[in-house]
Nucleic acid binder design. Sequence first.
DNA 1: ATTTACTTGACTAAAATAGTCGGTCTTTGC
DNA 2: GCAAAGACCGACTATTTTAGTCAAGTAAAT
Lengths: 149, 149
Amino acid sequence: MRLTTRGRYAVTAMLDLALHGADGPISLADISQRQEISLSYLEQLFAKLRQNELVTSVRGPGGGYRLARSGESINVAEIIDAVNESIDATSCSGKGNCQSGGVCLTHHLWDDLSQQIHRFLSGISLDSLVHQQEVRLVVLRQAEESEMS
Amino acid sequence: MRLTTRGRYAVTAMLDLALHGADGPISLADISQRQEISLSYLEQLFAKLRQNELVTSVRGPGGGYRLARSGESINVAEIIDAVNESIDATSCSGKGNCQSGGVCLTHHLWDDLSQQIHRFLSGISLDSLVHQQEVRLVVLRQAEESEMS
DNA sequence: ATTTACTTGACTAAAATAGTCGGTCTTTGC
DNA sequence: GCAAAGACCGACTATTTTAGTCAAGTAAAT
């Protein structure tokens, strides 16, 4: 299992869209500045998010990305999935052939853990994050920072 | 956050000790054969497990390792910790300085997830694994396999 | 037409993983 | 006392993944 900056960046960027995308598409340059994520790296991530139909793009001046569905219907687990970070904790990717055809001693444990994590993350929608106190505070700070520059 | 073969191997090896260590120390060679883990790699892992006082060693012929405490009092979270696989899912290692001194947009989410995982894994003792039906079945299969060779 | 911005693919440095290898030190049993 | 078993230690390495750069497009709006 891995949960690295890739998945974290993807969720952060999607949350940025949910927060600022109310009126019109958001450019990757904006997200890059607000969330301090390399622009070229965002391009890579959004290619996958688009393939997985989590965002739609608008080309040309004033263009950018917007959420493909409502923030209510998009959960964190599917964002992480979209950028190829499996939440699976087993070594056999759930296939159950971790030791010479059968399951290994701890297969069941990792399987349980995977389900636990998946249940947790898929229960969290972008909308629910938008409404969190902790998130709102960060949004305010980011707004101040952007005024200064 | 990472959960890779290192943490999985460590838990598997510790469970092997809990299962077979009732009468006398278990050699790494035994564990290596039963669990199909490279002997040299096990040595690395057990160095850390010993430093963290999860196992004690007995040198010389007939020697090996045994659990330092009862299987009831050792939980999976501390085993994974011992081999340096942090369960923390935040990018700032919980420090809260993920974005220019403050927290990033999704810090709280990863913090929550980390706690969730930690609570789950620290609630599982080696003993509770020993008594699981799924584990017992694998133990039987492994016993058969070792008879054949 | 020109500008803006998305799109694609190839490429790369750095880190982590998953080991290997060779040797040393201790203890037990013959 | 000596040989073998097995823990212990450190250095070394191939592979993979991550995180990111760079350059060359393509599409759409003004």
